[in-house]
Every structure is written in structure tokens, then in C-alpha cells.
Design a protein around this nucleic acid. Structure first.
Lengths: 338, 338
DNA sequence: CTGAAAGCGCTAACAG
DNA sequence: CTGTTAGCGCTTTCAG
């Protein structure tokens, strides 16, 4: 690892000039050329730790997500990565497993490493973002909002789940269960509201509380919840899954029990990326995860670049891919794989 | 962000003593206590850039993978993360999208940031790892080997695919296709060999070359390949997918064409984590991805800690979860979800 | 056990 | 446009 001094010596210029060449400051063509050549000869790469120390600012963005095993977040990560790379930032992915302690650990590290900014899907609405704010670092919340004053990018969760439920109602289902995530997670709660709204506005009354199941936002969570629902004295005739993974779990269990749709109505909020069944019997509400990542990254980079407009929140719109209950079953699947 | 000097002043000691307290060097109990208190009061966090600059070594490990959208790699990432965290390292995930240029970019960054080590699933056998080696940094290759002299952790790819194919043969299939990844990817090729071996040893002759399909290691790749295979004058009666995502694509297409197993035999090398079908009709060869990550992390940390034994390679064993062709179909699925 | 002091490699004034 | 110089915050000899 050659240093700027060795390059300077070899090129016959001062270290400052070398630094300037690598930072786009004005340097005569002649010296620029000599520096470039010397740097190439020595395989020089600027020492980022030194640069960060000096500038009190690095070129990396932390992306903190609750579940790296969920394709929804990895798709989002792709969006963040693409936009960030275009602007010269690297993204480091931090997986909290929905644990608050890991979350604050990563936040800590982001500050200690002087990272340029952080994009976080907070495990809780009350995740303490104040250290970041106080340090004057850029931050944007994705997927879930925060009680702290930060920019945000979210989905229209209530509407998404309402749309999903509406499709089930249109198909004639009347006893529709809702399987959602932990009550502490905002998206889980908002989606329940959408479900309740839809049922209420069609049937004129609140859904049976027994039909609401909280569980984890994972495959197991969906399985467990569905299992519980099936043991009800009066089981549901349809179910709406509040996230993709729960949808997978629900469908797995139903398949095992020989209850696959259309025997029972199923709608899922979120895409089923790696499903192997023809998804035509399931209503899927596609959430633009990648776009969410891109938007968050753009917002963050604007802030890093000094934008100090008032706090903003962007709400992204979903698209509904309705189940086909009857019709030409040999047509291609409606849900594109990628 | 308080500095070590402010903490020192508040505790009435020298900066060196503060440093010692935070690095586990011997300091009197009295001063240790005063330093701890002062640090807490000031919410002091050591500046990592400074520490890294000085020590020429950071506490982060780079994990470079070709496809963050593949659950196989995210499972592996979990394994790496868990082991690393236990030893006080943070892991940053770098997604190359199977692109050599991104790959070398990340390698560059890892060096420039003086990261403690890197774990890489090389996009190609010939990915240039020499800069890392020359810098004396620890490195281990996972999933795929390297022509460079580095430690490695891989799967028994040939055997895995051979086992998968054998199960198909045992079920009586005789015209078995193999759908695999790019010919440039080692795992893709090794798995083909396993297929060929199995076919040869049972039928006594080489498989029909038309039955071998190279494509991308993704869902689309599996779909495309399967589609091609079905147009053959003499289509296969079974197919072995060389990775999980291709397996998903193949099953999707077969479902759409109403050709789902057991109408056609299917075996997959790799788990089907988010599949919604009952997987009992499909032979799955489970690859211990998480364990691979854990092993790689342990190996890497040993090297970081100065171990200079000769180069090592660990080969992990898979487990076969055979398809159930006949029998009690209402039993639980054989493939656990998590 | 503790403090003083010298950098790690880079950038950013400040002169010239 | 270019060189000199003074640190960024931390660790680590080297004395004491």
C-alpha cells in the first residue's frame, strides 16, 4: 500500500498535488499525467481510513434492515446499492434480525466510522435515532416510519391490505382472516386496519376478532397462524397475509392440508418471489421494494449533499395482481419472477 | 463525538490511559473507574477511522457474494455474521451481481479500508486475489474455489448432484436432463460431472448431450432452460436442477404447463426455502449454507489471529431429502422451512 | 502503572 | 496552479 508521499516523490510533485489529482481539484495537465502514471506504477490506492479521519466523513452508506432473509429487503437493498454506486458511495448491509440491541450497535458503528448516512428500516417506531441526528448525519427511514424527525419512504400499507381484502370480498368470501406481524411493528398494524376497513365497508360490521392473528413476519409465523385459524370452531373461508413470507407459510400449510386456493381464498400483501406454484389462484399486492430503496438512497444523498428542506415522507403505491378464479388456466403466470 | 482527550481531561488522566482502558491494557482500578465514568458522561465512542489509521487494521470483515437475492447466500451470510459478531467483528455485505468489475471494486475497498479480512464467493476461479494476498490480509474463498492459494470452504458439489441424479434413477427415470449455471462457474461444472457420473454408472453410457442446459443460476435461467428442454424432439422424463433458484424456475414452468412432478421427475441441488408447494414430490439435496458461512468465518478469524498453518480446504457434506413418490401424502413436508 | 510525544496517511488552509 | 504545514483521533514506544 503505497502512500501519497511515495507517489509524490516518484512524480516529482508535492503530496498536496497528488491529493488534488485524486480529488478532482485543478492541477495542470502535465502534473496530472505524471501523478497518474506514478500512482499506477505503485498500484496506489488512497487510504480510506486516513481520508475519513481527516474529512470526518466517509463514502459509505449503512443500510440497516431487520431480516436479510426476506427477499423484500434484499430487493430494496439492490435499489439502494444501484443508486448509491452511481453517486460513488458503497453500501454496507447490516442485518438486525429485528433486534433492537443489534440495531443500536450498528447505528453506533455507523457514527464511529463516520459513515455518510444511514438508511434504516427501524425495528421499532421508537428506535432511538437521536445520536445520528445529533451528530448531524443524514438518515432516512424506510418501510417503517420513526417518531424522530427524519425523512421517510414507506408503502401505502393500509390501502394495500384493504385492496387485497377487497379482492377477496369481490370473490364472494365473507369470513376473511388476517394474518399479520407483531403488534409492535407499524406495518403489521396498518395492514390490519386496511383489512378491517375493507370488511367493515362491505359487510357493514367489524370482522370477528378471532380472525385476526399476530405472529412473526416469517414463513413459520404464517404457518403457525394458519394452523391456529384452522382449529377455530368456525374457520375462515379466506385469509389475507400481511407480508410475503407469511403468505408463503400460509400457502405451504394449506397445500399440505389439501386446502389450496381456490378451495380457500388467499391474498398476500407483497410478492411471492420464489414460489413454485402457479400464482394465479392467489391475489398478490405487489410492493415496489426496489423503488423504495432507490427513492431512499436518492433522498439520503440529497441530504448528504447539504439539502436542508423540511422533513419529507414519500409514500409508494402498490399494484394489485388479482387472482384469476376461473378462465384460461394455461396462460402464463401473472406474477413475474423478477 | 467526544475524543479521547476530552475524556482524559475529565478523568484527570492522560489520553494514553484512556486508550489503555478501552483496549484492555493494565490500568489501576481507580483510574479505570474514573475513565469509564467520564466516557459515559460524554457518550464517548472511539473514532474508528483514527484507530484503523493508526493500527492499520479494522474490525470489519467483508463478505463478497455474487447474488444477494439468493437465499443460499443470505443464509450463509447469517452464519458468517453470527460467528463474526461473537469475536467482535462486524460484517459488511457486498453484492457483486456476479460481475467481476464490482468484485474487484469491493476487494479494492476492503484493502483501502484496512479491513481485517475478506470472505469471498469468487465470480470466477481466476478472480484476482493477489492484491489481498500481497497486502497480507486474511482471505477465505467460499462456495467456489480459487486458483490462488487461499483457504476454502466448499460443498461436495459433484457428489451432491450425483446423489440427486441417483434418486431420479432409482425412481425409474432414464432420460434425465441437467440444468446448470454458466460454464465459467465452477460449481455449475462440478454438478454436471455428478449428473454425468450417475447416469453413466447406471445406464452404462454417457447422457445425451442435448439434455445438458447451461443458463444463469437464477429463476429465469431455470425457466428458460426447462422451456428449451420441453421443445426437444425427445424431451426428458426428469430433470436435475443444479441450484435452488433454477429449481424454482423449473418447477414454476412445469406447474404452468401442467407437468408438475410426479408427472416428471425433479431433483434440486439446494433448498427451496420459499416454495409454496408441498415439496414431497421433489428430491432436495440440502446444502448446509449457514454452516459454510460459520466455518469460513472461523477459518478467517484464525488467520487474522495469526495462524499460519498451510492452506486448508474444508468440504461440507449435504443431506438428501428424497421425494416420496407414493405413500401418505398428508404427512408434513420433508423440507423444513428454516 | 502512567505520561509525553511521535506519528498512521490524508486533506485543507494558507502562502506564494 | 502548487508547495508547505498543521492537524484529524488514536495507539504505542519510550521513559519515568
Amino acid at each position: 500500500m503505497a502512500t501519497i508521499y511515495e507517489v509524490a516523490a516518484r512524480a516529482g510533485v508535492s503530496p498536496a498535488t497528488v491529493s488534488r489529482v485524486f480529488n478532482g481539484a485543478r492541477v495542470s495537465a502535465d502534473k496530472t499525467e505524471r501523478v497518474r502514471r506514478a500512482a499506477a506504477d505503485l498500484a496506489f490506492t488512497p487510504n480510506r481510513a486516513a481520508r475519513t479521519l481527516r474529512r470526518r466523513n466517509s463514502e459509505v452508506i449503512a443500510l440497516i434492515i431487520p431480516d436479510i432473509g426476506n427477499p423484500y429487503y434484499t430487493e430494496m437493498a439492490r435499489g439502494v446499492g444501484d443508486v448509491a454506486r452511481e453517486s460513488g458511495y458503497s453500501v454496507v448491509l447490516c442485518n438486525t434480525d429485528e433486534r433492537g440491541d443489534h440495531e443500536s450497535g450498528f447505528l453506533q458503528i455507523a457514527l464511529a466510522e463516520h459513515m455518510a448516512g444511514v438508511i434504516i428500516a427501524p425495528a421499532s417506531e421508537r428506535t432511538d435515532l437521536s445520536p445520528v441526528l445529533e451528530a448531524g448525519r443524514a438518515i432516512v427511514a424506510v418501510d417503517r416510519t420513526s417518531t424522530f424527525a427524519v425523512d421517510g419512504v414507506t408503502m401505502a400499507n393500509r390501502e394495500a391490505c384493504r385492496n387485497a381484502t377487497d379482492h377477496l370480498l369481490e370473490q364472494g368470501f365473507r369470513r376473511i382472516a388476517c394474518v399479520t406481524g407483531p403488534a409492535a411493528v407499524e406495518t403489521a398494524v396498518e395492514r390490519v386496519e386496511g383489512w378491517r376497513e375493507a370488511v367493515r365497508s362491505t359487510t357493514g360490521k367489524d370482522p370477528d376478532p378471532q380472525l385476526l392473528c399476530h405472529s412473526t413476519f416469517r414463513v413459520d409465523g404464517g404457518r403457525d397462524a394458519m394452523e391456529r385459524l384452522l382449529t377455530l370452531p368456525e374457520p375462515p373461508d379466506a385469509v389475507v397475509a400481511a407480508n410475503n413470507l407469511m403468505g408463503v407459510g400460509i400457502l405451504q400449510l394449506l397445500n399440505e392440508r389439501r386446502l389450496a386456493p381456490p378451495a380457500i381464498g388467499v391474498a398476500v400483501v407483497g410478492s411471492l418471489p420464489f414460489t413454485t406454484m402457479s400464482p394465479r389462484a392467489v391475489t398478490v399486492v405487489r410492493l415496489p421494494a426496489r423503488e423504495m430503496g432507490e427513492t431512499a438512497a436518492k433522498l439520503l444523498i440529497q441530504r448528504i449533499d447539504g439539502d436542508d428542506e423540511p422533513q419529507r415522507t414519500v409514500v409508494l403505491q402498490h399494484t394489485v395482481e388479482p387472482a384469476i378464479v376461473s378462465g384460461d388456466d394455461s396462460a402464463p403466470a401473472l406474477t413475474p419472477t423478477r
